[in-house]
Simulated assay, not measured.
Amino acid sequence: MSVMASMTSPEHDITENSKIKIWFRFVPREDWLPYSTEGLWATRLSEDTARLENAPFLQDGVAEGETVRFTTDADGLHWAKELVEASGNCTIRILPVPSGPLGPSAQAVHERLAPFGLGGEVFSEDLPLVAVTVPADAELGQIKALLIRGQEDGWWHFEASCVTDAWRNA
Rank of each mutant, 00 (worst) to 15 (best):
M1W: 04
M4Q: 14
M4I: 09
S6L: 13
M7G: 13
T8A: 15
P10L: 08
P10S: 10
E16L: 03
S18P: 01
K19I: 14
W23S: 08
F24Y: 08
V27C: 08
P28K: 06
P28E: 07
R29L: 03
E30N: 09
W32K: 09
L33A: 08
L33P: 05
P34M: 02
P34A: 03
Y35F: 00
S36K: 12
E38R: 07
G39K: 10
G39E: 13
L40A: 09
L45E: 11
S46P: 12
S46K: 11
D48L: 00
D48T: 12
D48I: 05
T49F: 08
A50W: 01
A50C: 03
L52Y: 00
L52H: 01
E53Y: 07
E53M: 03
N54L: 13
A55H: 07
A55K: 09
A55N: 08
P56L: 11
L58Y: 12
L58W: 12
L58A: 09
Q59F: 07
G61H: 09
V62I: 06
E64A: 02
G65L: 03
E66P: 07
E66F: 05
T67I: 05
V68D: 01
T71I: 13
D73I: 11
A74F: 07
A74Y: 11
D75S: 11
D75I: 10
D75L: 14
G76S: 00
G76C: 02
L77C: 00
L77E: 02
H78G: 01
H78W: 03
H78F: 00
E82N: 02
E82F: 02
E82Q: 03
V84E: 10
A86K: 14
A86P: 15
A86G: 14
N89E: 01
C90A: 13
I94V: 15
L95F: 06
P96M: 09
S99M: 06
G100I: 05
G100V: 06
L102K: 07
S105T: 05
A106V: 05
V109D: 04
V109H: 03
E111T: 12
R112Y: 07
P115M: 08
P115W: 06
F116Y: 12
F116P: 13
F116M: 05
F116H: 11
G117M: 09
L118F: 04
G119R: 11
G120A: 13
G120F: 12
E121T: 15
E121C: 06
E121V: 13
V122C: 15
F123Q: 11
D126R: 15
D126Q: 14
P128W: 07
A131R: 10
A131Y: 12
V132Q: 11
T133L: 06
V134M: 05
P135A: 02
A136S: 14
D137C: 09
A138P: 12
G141D: 12
G141R: 15
Q142F: 14
I143R: 08
K144H: 00
A145V: 02
A145P: 09
R149I: 01
G150A: 04
Q151G: 07
Q151D: 09
W155M: 08
W155K: 14
W155G: 10
W155F: 09
W156L: 01
E159D: 08
A160P: 07
C162G: 00
T164N: 01
D165F: 00
D165V: 01
W167R: 06
N169E: 15
